[in-house]
């Protein structure tokens, strides 16, 4: 836990960490909490009941009779289940792709036998016609790999433009605003929790890939990477073991901000009624119901405060990372 005790943490950041742990804890325990009402079962006898009233709804009910407190708790569960994995997955994907793009650039070359094996593999995966030909190509590829290994033979090598491909895909994904892209894709695919997770991950990774790539361009020129190369360590090991951990530095700041951005995106989607199916509780969907009954302030105030406090906490945590990423960890 070097992250938590290495430097001074201001009280607001302690509060932020406390709130975020509370939200995650609530999300984990949501199904076991002794709630008087479940979010999926509207109480039609008390529609839009004010909070702290005679009915047993502590925070009132929304215009469709759902208990605000339980929607808040299960909404936190949805949020945590969606944004946390999406942020982590997109950070990992972006780190690997951006790290590879920054480390090797367009210069990596792959010997022809490996190209043959890759072509044969692709042929087999796509199940193109004439599978016998693919088999022959694969045999030739494997034989030449073995030959090269046994007789120290040098095959011609063709370049693999990793940098161009990764950055091209990232630029393509960045062309369309994320919200429009997600709205379009959500309409195309049937939306469920896993598919929305995949969608968010796919549209979020370019940012972390850019950050890691930029840092990697700096790191790969540092003396210790050169020393590792000079020691004869294979390039893949230099990349993964020596260079990549240092190139991940910008993600410590970017990860909380990315979670905050995903939180905003997810609640916007459910607010628009596009994200998750209507029976999944979420803060955005609860907020959308206030338009049916503008006098029901409690439907608006409670989820909005949850949302704002969470986003502000995430921002303040990212500032802490920024503050001590300047000096090296002890």
């Amino acid at each position: 836990m070097a992250l938590l005790n290495s430097t001074f943490i201001s009280w607001s950041q302690k509060l932020a960490i406390a709130w975020l742990s509370f939200v995650v804890l609530i999300a984990i325990l949501a199904t076991t909490l002794p709630l008087p009402y479940l979010p999926g079962f509207p109480d039609l006898a008390h529609v839009a009941a004010p909070p702290f009233g005679a009915s047993n709804h502590w925070l009132g009910t929304d215009p469709q009779g759902r208990d605000v407190l339980s929607v808040l708790i299960f909404g936190a569960r949805t949020t945590v289940l969606l944004t946390l994995p999406a942020a982590v997955l997109s950070a990992i994907l972006g780190a690997l792709l951006g790290g590879a793009a920054g480390f090797w650039g367009n210069s990596i070359r792959l010997a022809v036998p490996y190209w043959l094996v890759a072509v044969a593999g692709g042929w087999w995966v796509l199940r193109l016609p004439m599978s016998l030909l693919a088999f022959v190509i694969a045999i030739v590829g494997v034989c030449s790999v073995v030959a090269a290994w046994l007789r120290k033979q040098i095959w011609p090598a063709w370049p693999v433009p990793i940098d161009a491909v990764v950055m091209g895909v990232a630029t393509t994904l960045d062309t369309i605003p994320r919200l429009v892209l997600v709205v379009a894709m959500a309409a195309v695919s049937d939306v469920s929790l896993p598919s929305l997770l995949a969608l968010l991950t796919l549209t979020t990774w370019p940012h972390s890939a850019r950050l890691v790539r930029a840092q990697m361009l700096r790191v790969r020129a540092l003396p210790f990477v050169e020393a590792a190369r000079a020691a004869g360590i294979p390039a893949a090991q230099v990349w993964f073991v020596h260079a990549l951990p240092h190139a991940l530095q910008p993600l410590r700041t970017a990860l909380p901000l990315s979670i905050a951005g995903l939180l905003g995106l997810e609640s916007t989607l459910s607010f628009l009624g596009i994200g998750l199916p209507p029976d999944v509780a979420s803060w955005g969907r609860l907020l959308a119901t206030v338009r049916d009954d503008p006098s029901a302030w409690w439907v608006f105030v409670f989820p909005v405060s949850c949302l704002i406090i969470t986003i502000v906490s995430l921002n303040s945590i990212s500032r802490r990372r920024l503050a001590f990423s300047n000096h090296p960890p002890r």
Partner: peptide, 12 residues
Amino acid sequence: ALPLFVVALILL
């Protein structure tokens, strides 16, 4: 830090 729809809803 505020999402746009929150700002819009507050104004509304």
